[in-house]
Design a protein around this nucleic acid. Sequence first.
DNA 1: CAGACAAATGGTAGCGCTACCATGAAAGGC
DNA 2: GCCTTTCATGGTAGCGCTACCATTTGTCTG
Lengths: 342, 342
Amino acid sequence: MTKPRSRRGGGRPTIADVARKAGVGAITVSRALREPGRVSQDLRRQIQAAVDELGYVPDPNARALASARADVFGVLVPSLTNNVFAEVVRGIYDSLSDSPFRIQLGNTHYSGLEEERLLQVFAPQRPAALIVAGIDQTPLSRKLLETAGCPVVQVMETGPDPVDMMVGFSHFDGGRTATEHLIEKGYRRIGFIGARMDPRSQRRLAGYRAAMEAAGLFDPRLITTTPVPSSVTLGRELFRDALAKMPTLDGVFCNNDDIALGVLFECHRASIDVPKLIGIVGFNDLDMMHVSFPSITSVRTHRYEIGTRSVAMALAAIAGNPPERRIVDLGFELMQRESTAR
Amino acid sequence: MTKPRSRRGGGRPTIADVARKAGVGAITVSRALREPGRVSQDLRRQIQAAVDELGYVPDPNARALASARADVFGVLVPSLTNNVFAEVVRGIYDSLSDSPFRIQLGNTHYSGLEEERLLQVFAPQRPAALIVAGIDQTPLSRKLLETAGCPVVQVMETGPDPVDMMVGFSHFDGGRTATEHLIEKGYRRIGFIGARMDPRSQRRLAGYRAAMEAAGLFDPRLITTTPVPSSVTLGRELFRDALAKMPTLDGVFCNNDDIALGVLFECHRASIDVPKLIGIVGFNDLDMMHVSFPSITSVRTHRYEIGTRSVAMALAAIAGNPPERRIVDLGFELMQRESTAR
DNA sequence: CAGACAAATGGTAGCGCTACCATGAAAGGC
DNA sequence: GCCTTTCATGGTAGCGCTACCATTTGTCTG
């Protein structure tokens, strides 16, 4: 004599309960919720009333199973704590907060293998879209993306061969622009300091090198890098290494702002005048760069916009309107500040 | 004559395909995957072979629907970019990366209403556990947590009345300890500077006030706060405001490290000697605090551990071994540095 | 006004998996 | 030796929803 419906789970109302209460078929309730335009206004109102009264919320799992399509955006980033990716992710969340889509976030830890593993976990869920950081997927990852059967957006960088869509900017150009700025300002022995040399860092380094070579200033001993994850502490240490190796150093292009801040602090500590003796350029333009003393020149990137834009493109593609430009370059801006103003 | 199975979705292998190939019943495959101990070794091997050959991956949606329980951890944090929460989330991700559990991350934007909304989205998914930041849930949120039917861990803070479990520390004590340190060092006109005065900030402020009152030093004009989100820029501005209001200020307890850094930069800019004229204490102890010049005294909190510990507790509860201590206080450490060394 | 066609609604049959119960075989108790 | 208890396995019946197709009604053609 127990209610048949309560066999498992709780007694949460189902679509059938709503249908009964509204005096319609279950499928009509389903339609009223998903494609209101296809249900007459009268029924729509009745159904809405029943939904409200019962507090009905569709079960996303049942929906995904029946429609072979989950309302999920899969998002893969290499780090959760790196401010750069956190901003991108924030843009994605904000853009999706009013939509029916949920987000499945994966942390690849800068590992191609981990990315493959996560993609293999995400794919079976038949996500509505996939957003992945970077353009250097392994062959398997690339294949998984291509066969995922949903819009795919590669973010952070632009490159020649998108899986589907791309939103980002050229790290090579960013690195070159930063370096050219130092050269223009009269710095000559310009070092490159970088940690966690991921593919984007490598391309910024390549941009640095191109600028230095074009000016006839390149010297491999000016480059100081490490695979260790980036931090302000590390910036300080690498700068000390660089200076020990190359005492005539008069400028540094830092792979990111954490490093740049570490360099600045070390200059303070060692009483090295910035920008007189050493010019400093960072990358990303975190909030603190314009507040520090001296303020630090940096390459501003549009991280939040990368997130919002990638969602907009994916949403358009889902709606059947794939954007005509599959590659969106959001560019960057060189923010000139006191650290290079001599 | 089309294959009946390919009506919708793709032709991904199902449990029935594996069962057929291994020559066993579907339910045995299901068991072999979830409770290997209950299947004989022979069948287990056959099934594993079939799984590998077909590349079978269970459909999490079907599993969730059938078992009325999703392998999902719901995680609610007020911000994705605030390093503090990013570290907690990283701890959660790292702890769960080798488990079958996925993570559903929600951003409440420091809003109780948004938290309610997200909880109403999460609950229908019947998550395996819920981890929420803070202890100041609205009555509705609290009820949703209590009736979620899964382990719940409130993180970041400790308090008297957990919904289920708690991992954090006392922000009141943290604020008091920081302030007492400044008093001990001989600072007297000690200001409090805080942005985005969320409940945790409020409690740090209360700790500050308790310490100041105990020393007979309290003056409400020493307090400078704003509801605006915290940033280094804001730290600088608030410090200028505080100084304008109270020129005799000789110390500041900053609600967090961003603010503290802004204060330090402004001191540099205005040639105010730290720690001689002004003592600075931050909160959270970000990496940069020990690198800055002068290095900044801060209250170290164990953010990553809060994440890993909360997962460990939830996992134990899921396994049927709820921890005996439902409230875990991870404490904090005062890191004394140059900014208060006079 | 018949015929064609669209719009609105409903019934049926799964989606892929697991809870529940049943079955048969092996193992143990007296 | 019979009966109970375990263990290993399988069959059936859904979980809550939507794709597909059928049905009904109203609306437009000529």
